[in-house]
Design a protein around this nucleic acid. Structure first.
Lengths: 300, 300
DNA sequence: CTCCGTGTTTTGTCCTGGACAAACCAGAAC
DNA sequence: GTTCTGGTTTGTCCAGGACAAAACACGGAG
């Protein structure tokens, strides 16, 4: 009981590494080294689960598992991010101190303080600037801090949950959309990050678009159904870095085929930044691109 | 392109049936019958994916796969729910017509109308009655309608997303908690339903508890970390019917062991209704039980 | 020196077929 | 009618093999 053991399903849930991968690593690299219960089934000690989570984190940062598993112990935080940070200098410096202040509140687990500070900035800046200059860079900073291990999982969750609330609240105060265009916002199964979609929704709603937020994890076939039921003009999807890159092109192609030609398909998020979208799919590099695309759609 | 095919990973994502189960059904029951690509890998036609989703839905309702797969075609909606509906008569009749009105708005995909109707009821009834008499029965109705196939997936998602917004907005208008007790609200990985947690949060916040919402899908080891970082007095978890029942006792026992003895562990949701909680874990049958438990905690 | 093509290594996913335990059901005994 | 018990159903796990896509390393051309 003092050293609780995880079966392979629990490890998959907690680390995000599939059972196949866990078994394969054991076969190939000799790690992890789970014990077996009376039935011959793997039992992972908690410390190995912890190490697996660390390895997964560094892998998401661009490291390769072979090296990570071979590295003995001093690889803790000694490893720098391998993937070039997307424009670390381009980040708005005009409020770097303010961002740091918000991050500090999260680090101190001061939920009320963080919410208040956020709402204060929202009122001061207005929604558009709030999204572009505060929430967007803040999200990126948190993502980087999480990748570096400077943020715990639960701190990232707290940040996400509180920020979502402020954003949704701001969106709710906007007047209803003009009815055109009708934009359906969602993400595919296995993609649960929604902050990017919320930011886009805020910007589009500001421009008078009619946003239909469907939450995350919408099965492929349901999206086309929802699009016709809601008479959507545009379907907007978001992909985070965590989404398995290899599957995206096929999924987009399938969805594109299932949607009527008149419905535009927009994709965005850091998960598609290194991707050439299939024909008929528009990829956005950033939030501003979404607003520009809306203006473009209206000109048609 | 007209009949897009799904590989086994896509089917797993869209149906929620694991790869193991999909292969096993094929071996045992002769269904599904995917084709193979040049590489010998399974390719599921869209119609079989649709049927698999239907089967999964009926299974969640208590039917058994062997019977469902044997049934030829007329099993569409001919099957009644096998699990006894939890107190269909006990449901508050005082506003049944009002509930039906809200459901109709969702069925008509009238997002703005639904939100307005909801907010109107919130103002009229006050938060407590709104949660207990509107949102809770409404959620149950939607769940049943979804199980029966009267609601599409995207309609259920729209309902969830819009209702979440109204609830969160209501919570945001409450004054900050009194600081005691500090309640940490979250769910385990693979459990993404959050409406129940939000309802509980609203009720507890009304009573002056300090709620720390961490969102869903918190890894086991992170929960105990978060509990100590936030100096929580209580950890509240929610389980929906979709959560694999067999894994719950072991998970709760592990978490109970990882938490300090002074921290109470509360669990609720329809997923634990047919479960005897391990020692040291309090199970709640309904939302009211949570409020009573809060009063009890304060008396200690 | 940088950029681009090509061969090699790494890595994840999929496959088959077997085993077993937990959940479920049905019929017997009380 | 209720409780116990044995058989059946069903999901998950295991081992080991195969292969393709991605990542890398290297050499040549601009």
């Amino acid at each position: 009981m003092n050293t609780p053991s995880f079966n392979i399903a629990a490890v998959e849930r907690d680390t995000g590494l599939s059972k196949d991968v866990l078994r394969m690593w054991e076969r190939r690299y000799g790690f992890p080294t789970p014990e077996r219960d009376g039935n011959g089934e793997r039992l992972y000690p908690a410390e190995q689960v912890e190490r697996l989570r660390q390895i997964k984190r560094l892998m998401d940062q661009g490291h390769r598992p072979g090296k990570l598993i071979a590295a003995p112990e001093g690889e803790l935080s000694a490893l720098a991010p391998r993937r070039p940070r997307p424009a670390p200098a381009e980040c708005q410096i005009n409020d770097r101190a303010g961002l740091e202040e918000l991050l500090t509140l999260i680090r101190q687990h001061d939920a009320n303080g963080y919410t208040q500070a956020l709402q204060q900035r929202l009122v001061r800046l207005g929604l558009q600037s709030f999204v572009l200059d505060i929430v967007a860079p803040l999200t990126q900073q948190v993502g980087e801090a999480w990748e570096d291990g400077r943020f715990a999982v639960f701190e990232e969750h707290l940040f996400t949950e509180l920020t979502k609330r402020v954003l949704r609240q701001a969106i709710a105060t906007l007047p209803p959309g003009s009815g055109s265009p009708r934009v359906l916002l969602t993400s595919l199964p296995d993609e649960q990050h929604i902050l990017g979609l919320l930011m886009l929704e805020a910007l589009l709603a500001l421009e008078g678009a009619e946003c239909i937020p469907l939450g995350t994890q919408m099965p492929l076939l349901e999206i086309s159904r929802a699009a016709s039921a809601h008479r959507a003009d545009i379907v907007a999807l978001s992909f985070s870095v965590a989404f398995p890159l290899r599957q995206i092109p096929a999924l987009l192609q399938q969805l594109r085929g299932a949607l009527p030609d008149a419905v535009e398909l927009w994709v965005g998020g850091s998960g598609v930044s290194r991707l050439t979208p299939p024909p008929g799919v528009l990829r956005f590099a950033g939030l501003e691109a979404g607003v520009e695309a809306l203006a473009g759609w209206r000109q048609q």
